[in-house]
Write a protein that binds this DNA or RNA. Sequence first.
DNA 1: ATTCTAGCTTTGTCGGACAAATCCAGAATA
DNA 2: TATTCTGGATTTGTCCGACAAAGCTAGAAT
Lengths: 255, 255
Amino acid sequence: MPTAPFFRRIDVAPAYQKVADAIEREIVNGRIKPGEPIGTEQELVQQFGVNRSTVREGIRVLEEGGLIQRDSSRRLHACLPRYNKLATRLSRALVLHEVTFRELFEASMTLEAASIQGAVERATDANVAELADNLERSEKVVADPAALAELDAEFHVLIAKASQNRVLQLAREPAAQLFFPTTEMIVGRIAEGGARLVEAHRHLLDAIKRRDKEAGALWTRRHLQDWRRGFEKIASLDRSVEHMYMEHAHAARRR
Amino acid sequence: MPTAPFFRRIDVAPAYQKVADAIEREIVNGRIKPGEPIGTEQELVQQFGVNRSTVREGIRVLEEGGLIQRDSSRRLHACLPRYNKLATRLSRALVLHEVTFRELFEASMTLEAASIQGAVERATDANVAELADNLERSEKVVADPAALAELDAEFHVLIAKASQNRVLQLAREPAAQLFFPTTEMIVGRIAEGGARLVEAHRHLLDAIKRRDKEAGALWTRRHLQDWRRGFEKIASLDRSVEHMYMEHAHAARRR
DNA sequence: ATTCTAGCTTTGTCGGACAAATCCAGAATA
DNA sequence: TATTCTGGATTTGTCCGACAAAGCTAGAAT
């Protein structure tokens, strides 16, 4: 017969985890504001009463989580996690789960449509200017798939930004990171691919300027359908996202 | 006059980062499959030729990134990053960026609608069964806001799962993690809140069974509008997501 | 006032150490 | 023979101390 349960489970989290949690709590609760210094490793050693190796393991956890960063002089600061850094983690997860382009396409269709919708409603003059600038640069490289693909990705990031909805901005990022690298391949394979892409962007910007939801939705659909048609010339939508995209994400993270 | 650039930039990433990158590459490239052991710290020390402290810092990075895990016996294994663990990171980021409930609501509206859409098109019998089970349990706790809120969150996760779209599943999670904790408060404050919630779920499940897109879209809107009305009785939609939600996410992560 | 320099600090890495938990294989037992 | 026990070997989590390289700082030199 088991004894009555006098004791509750005791916390046996390793020390480095407790260090990480403690610092995380201070940051998330706002007691340490983004940008503020965390202190040197030596100080943390003294405050927590653990060894420096232990502190350092805790620091790595927070660093990877994007909550703290080292500045130019390697000192620790709290910081706002950057979306695209986090999104890279997610993209990696999607790759490992071997999601298909069909899933990617469907999700992106929804997310991009919502972004445009938001942009049409709430884009500021500054947003429009950024988009216009991007469009102008795109027009100059219509014939250069690599450059155009990069600008295309940027264009859609700017649209998400113009939606003024950071949740949407974050939600679309992982899919976009996997989605847009294909653009380069596709633009080259479809007749007038570059021109069609730029034209779609032009209409999207125009829709935003005129706050015309209909046009925004229409050209989003067309733009993505173009992608889809192009993609299907290369491969089946049911192909899973390939490992090569990780190379891409990898390279991007280093920058 | 500067000399001709004979040399390219040399890589000065710290050793622990190189260790992490090296292991990550093997996993992402598929040379180490999820579930397979990574080896002991000692083995890694020998393979990389660095100190154990260095290896351990690298391990922390990968652990936090969700790429490796320790099993019950604390041995290291590669693993598929779990969505809700990653999503917790994102939720935390959203909190720190002080996103508003309006952003959360708008994004969720889009994402939940897309999930239902997908579920209506592609839900399997197993999905339907899970949803039916959830509904049944929900009906038993209509009067218990806390229990109902939890089941509501689960219901929507199940719907996303039924959409068979993992990108969508992942994209909706961060917003959902912040969105659904409010349900508990709201259900209590709106007349017949619990009953309305369960009714909406019933109609959603029904729409999925009948593969009726219209009904699915309609009841998603109603369901979320109910949330919105309830929320606005408590606070403005322009309130930023509060720090208290982190407590929630925090507690959940421990489980 | 500006530049230089020599120390002080901090980080990244290393080697070694030890207790606690876990694993494993051979011994003892039913 | 199958199961349980047990003691040693591994492995992890933590600690201590050390050192080179890079960054910072304050006083010296110009």
